[in-house]
Nucleic acid binder design. Sequence first.
RNA 1: GCGGGAGUCGCCCAGCCUGGUCAAAGGCGUAGGGCUUAGGACCCUAUCUCUUAGGAGUUCGUGGGUUCAAAUCCCACCUCCCGCACCA
Length: 954
Amino acid sequence: MTINWTEIETKWRNKWQENKDFETNPNDKPKKFITVAYPYPNSPQHIGHGRTYTLADVHARFYRMKGYNVLFPMGFHYTGTPVLGMAKRIKDEEKEILEGLRNIYHVPEDAIKTFVDPIKIADYFHEEIKSGMIEMGYSIDWRREFTTIVPGYQKFIEWQITTLREKGRIIQGSHPVGWCPECKNPVSQHDTLGDVEPKIDDKNFLIKFKLDDFVFPITTLRPETIFGITNLWVNPNTVYKKVTVDDETWIVSEECAKKIEFFEKKVAVIGEIPGSDVIGKNVKNHDGRDIPILPADFVEPGMGTGLVMSVPAHAPKDYQALMDLKAKNHELASKLEPIPIIVTEGYGSIPAKDIVEKMGISDQSDTKLEDATKELYLKEFTDGKLNDKCGQFNGEKVQFGRDKIRSWLQDNSNLEKFPVLEESVRCRCGCDCVVKVLNNQWFLNYGDEEWKKLARQCLDEMNILPSNIKTEFIEVIDWLHERACARQQGLGTKLPWDNDWIVESLSDSVIYMAYYTISRFVNDGTVTPENLTKEFFDYVLIDKGDVTLVASTSNLDENTIDMIKKEFSYFYPVDSRHSGRDLVQNHLSFFVLNHVAIFDKKLWPQEIVVNGSVMMDGAKMSKSMGNIIPLRKAIQDHGADPIRLAIISSAELLQDADFNMESVSGIQSKLESLLEECSRLRNESVGELEPEDKWILSKTQSKIAQITEAVEKMRLREALHDILFTFETDLNWYQKRTQAKSRDDISGILHQVNSTRVAMLSPFAPHIAEEMWEKLENSDLVSKTQWPEYSKEQVDATAIQAEELLKSTIEDIANILKVTKISPQKIVIYVNSDEFKSKVYHKILSIMVGGQNNMGVVMKELIADPETTDAKKMPDFVQKTIKDLHSESEEIKKMKLESSGFNEKEFLANELASIGKKEFGVDITVYSESDSEIYDPKGKARHARPFKPAILIE
RNA sequence: GCGGGAGUCGCCCAGCCUGGUCAAAGGCGUAGGGCUUAGGACCCUAUCUCUUAGGAGUUCGUGGGUUCAAAUCCCACCUCCCGCACCA
C-alpha cells in the first residue's frame, strides 16, 4: 500500500484544527506547560530546526494522552541584528546572499524586493516557518503567538528589565567591542569581510612610566618583566604625539593616539615631539627608579604605544639592541647591564644572552630574533620562577605570578587595560576595525555569588534530561560573569531608563514563557498593550500590590485582571523547556538565572530537555555545503510523519543525529505495512485464550511499561524503536506459533495488540496514527484516547516463562542440528520430573533473585535448609543450574519464582509438536524422565534439568 | 589555558547511569537461498575463532585496580571532537 502522505496528513490536520484540539485554557485537569526556544526568522527552517520542535511536540502529545491539560505555544524572536545585516547586504545587491535566497531558499522575487526592510525579512520567514510547523503537525496553541517586537511583548520586556534593575541585578560598566570607525557601529561576525569574528584580546595591558608631567605608556603581555627593566626604547626616526588622556598627558605614536580615541577616555592631541628629543632622558619606574630612554630602530610605531620597555636579561631583542649600542660605545648604554629576574632550568643567569649566542645572532636586524623570542617567552612562562629581585613575588612561578603582579600594579594605578584585536579585521564597508570601549554599558551581573547560589539550587531541584548534562550546567553557572544586556543597534525593546540602548536579544528571551499566558488576551483584544503597566505585571506575575490599584493604573476591570492572573498561576511554572545543546551555555543558563532572580521558588522551571544537533549524511549542515534540506521541502517529498520518525530514530536525545534519506524511506515502508495490517484487522471477539495468546498479551503489557518509561525520560529513540520494531519481533513469533497451529481466530487479539501499538505511536507519527486508528475502526481520535496503562494483573507470568521454555528448547534443537549437521528423522524431548531437583531449582532461584550468585554461598544456603541439604551430593547440577539462571533476565527469574506450579511436560507435549513440525519437519515426542514406557536408547533422559529438557535427535 | 564529550565485533551505531539477561541489539556490507525471463526491490539464513550434542576460547582505545563476576565501577595514559560570550 503506497500512502499519499499529503492527503492523509492534511485530512487529520484539518480535523484537529476544526476541533480546536490544541487550544488550551485553564481547567480542572493537572497541567503541563511545555515550551521550546522560539525561532529567529532569518531563514526557513531546515531539518535540524525540526528536531527540537518535534521532540517537544511528542512530549506534549504524550502528556495530553496521559490526561494532562497541555499548553504548547510558540512565538517568534525578531530581536537582534542578523536581519539588519541581511537587509543591508540585499540593499547593496550582494550576489552571494541574493543567490542563496533564490536558489537554496526559493524565495520569490517579489518578496526579495521587500527585503531591504529587515522586518519584512523576519515577517516572510516567520510565515514560512509557521507553515512548516503546522505541516509538521505540531500541536501548538496558535492563539498565543507573538513576535518579540509587538508592543505588548515590549511592555513585558520593559517590566522584566526594570524589575531586574530594581532587584540590583543590573550594573553599569565599560566593555570593549570590535568597532568600525566608518560605520560608527560595533561589528560582529556578520558585519566583517569574510565573516571573521573580531576577537578582542582583553589581557593586553599598558604600564605607565613618568617623566615630569608626561606619561610614557608601554604595552606588554609580560608585566612581571618590569622588575628587570633597564631602559625604554624609542624610535629616533618617529615623531611622537603629546596627547591628553583624561587628566594625564601621554607620549605615544600617532597610530596609538588614534586607537585610544575609541577608549572610554577624554583624548586630545596637543602637540608632538620627535623621538630623538627624548633620548637620553630618564623616566621614573613604578618604584621611583630612573630608567633611561635609548634609541632603537626595531621599535614599530604601529605596535602598542610605539614605545618599548627593555628587559635585556629576558628579551632577546632587547639584549641584542643593547649589545649593538655597547659595541658603538654608546655612553649611556655602556653603563647598563641586564637584570635577570626569572630563573629557568636549562638557562644561565642571563637567558637572553644564552639563546642569542646559541642561535648565532649577530645584530638586531637578524630575523632569527623572532624565533628566539618565542622560544624563550614560552619556556619562561611554563617553567620559569621569579627571583628575589621581584620583591614580594619572589619564588612564584611565572604563570601564576604574572596575574598577581598585574593586579598589584593596577591597584597602584601604574597599569591600565589596553584591549586590542587579536587579528586585524575589516568591516564590510572596507574600513579597518578597531577596538572601541563602550562606556556605560549595562550588564547583568551573572558573576554575583548570591545569584549563582540561587541558580544552583534551582538546577539541583530541576529535572534535567538527559541527566548527564547537568554537570555542564553547573560548570556554566560557575563560569558566567557580567554579561552585557543592551546593545546599540538591532531590533528590540529600548531600555526604559536609557533610550540609547536596546535590550540585547538573549536577555529579552529568558522569562518570556510567562507572556504566553497573557498574549492570548492581547491577541483577542481583551487587553491592549497600554493596559500592561508595571503594576499590572507586578500583580499578575509576582503577586505584588493589589488589584484595586492595578485596575486604576492599567484601566482594566478587576475581573479581567484576576482572570489573567489566574491563567498565569495555573500554567506557571514551566514544566518543560526544550532546546538545542548549543544553548546550554547561554540561553538555557540565563533562563534559569533570570527565573530565580525574578520569581518565587514555586514558579521556578521544573525541567529542561536538551537535544543534540542534526547532521546530514554525516556532515554538518551548512549553506556553503549546500546540504541544507528545508523542512517544508522534505515534508512535501516524504511526508511529515516519516520525517518526524526519521529525526527521532536517528539518535538518542543528546547525540548528534545523522539524518539520511534511506532511513526516511525505511520508515515509510514500515508505516505502510503497519497501515495495511491495521486495515485488515477486525475487532472480533476473543475466545478461549491459547498459551501464545496469553503470552503476546502479557508481552504487550511489559512493552507498555517499557515504552512509557522511555518516553517519560525522553528516550524517544528507544521508545519508537520498541513500538516499531521490537513489537514486531514478538508479533513474528506469535505469527509463527499460530500458523503452526493453523489458527484463524487471532484477528481480535492482533487488533487489541495493534490498537495499543498505534496509540503509543500517535505522539510520534500523529497523522498516520489517526489513519490507522480509523482503519482499526476504533472510536474517536487516537490523539484523544488515553495513553495505554500498564496493568500488572494482565501479565501472565506462567505464559511468559512457558513461551520462553518453548523458545529455548527450539533454539537448543537448532543448535545441535547446526553443530552435528545431521538431518533429523526423529526428535525426542525428556522433561525433568525429579521432585528433588525441582525443589533445589526453586531454592536456588529464590537465593539468586535475592541477589546472590556465588556458587559457594548458594551451596551453603542449600545445605542449611533440611529440605535441600542433599544438594551437596550433586554439585554439578547446582553449578549448571546457577549457570542456566545467570543467563536469564531478572524479570523472568521473578516470574518463575511466582508460578511454581508450572507443568513442563504438559505444556511441551501440547505446544512443541506443532511448532516443532513446522521448524524441523519431523515429529517431536515428549517424555517425562520418569515415564515407564520411555524411549531412551542413549540414556539422555537423566540429563534433564528443570527448564532445560534433555534432547535426543536421530 | 578552562570546560564538556567520544573511542564497541569490516563500516555506522546501541549497550555503560542501575556490573551477571553480553560474543554484545539494529542498520550497512558480504555469502548462500527464495522470488523474478534477468536485474532491482523484497523475504529467509549465515556473518570473532574452534567444535559431529545444546559447548569452549579470545574480544568492547591502552595499562592497572575493585569484585565470585567488568564493555559497564575506580585510577592513570593515548587519540579524536566540540564550546569559550555580547552572537542568534
